[in-house]
Each structure stands twice: as C-alpha cells, then as structure tokens.
Amino acid sequence: MPTIRVVLPQHLQTLAKTYGEVRLDIEGEVTHRAVLDALEIRFPTLRGTMRDPITLRRRPLLRFFACERDLTSESLDTPLPAPVVAATEPFCIIGAIAGG
C-alpha cells in the first residue's frame, strides 16, 4: 500500500487539527479520487470542504499541484505521477490565490 505525502491549505490543516505534511496510506491505484477519499476517511472534518458533499465536484477555488504541474483538470481517476506515488514529491492542495 503506497504511502504518499499531501500538503493541505492552512485552513484545512486547522480544521483537521493536523500540521505540516500529511502522510497518507492509499489503497489501490493512487488517483485524485483515492487521495480525497483517504483524506476524508482520515479526517472526517474535511468532508465537504474539498469537494461538494452531494455532487462530489471539486470546489472551484481549489487546485491540485504536483511535480511542478497543475493537475486540477485531470480526471479524478487518472493515476497521479510516479514521484507522488513514491512519496518523493508531495501532492499539494492549494486554495486559489484571490483577494487584494
């Protein structure tokens, strides 16, 4: 079972009462969906914050980055890059930068 590294935005770290990178065991293939499922199981307080709890659509102002690539528009079932699976690179969930 791969263990990957996930970086959460600060507000979600606070909500989940976890700080710094999260190490997350993923069952089966490592995809966006698998990562979000595992995060919501490990941290139930995050349910509904990264994706709508009814439609499961990604919240529009959240982005998924890894390996210097924006993976946000990838299919939820696309395998994540090998360095994420190998935990040499983190999977980053980013709140879109907005405001002034």
């Binding site: 935005p9 507000h11 307080t45 509904g48 914050t49 959240l62 879109a96």
Partner: peptide, 20 residues
Amino acid sequence: SGWFGQVMQRSSDGGKTWET
C-alpha cells in the same frame, strides 16, 4: 468560505471548545 464551502460547528461548553 468561498474556497472550502460550508462547515458546521457546535460547542457544549459555552464556546470554549468546538466540535465539527
């Protein structure tokens, strides 16, 4: 939050601590 949607909280000690 415009980023993270709706979260609900409750306190059972007058607002000292909160539970999602």
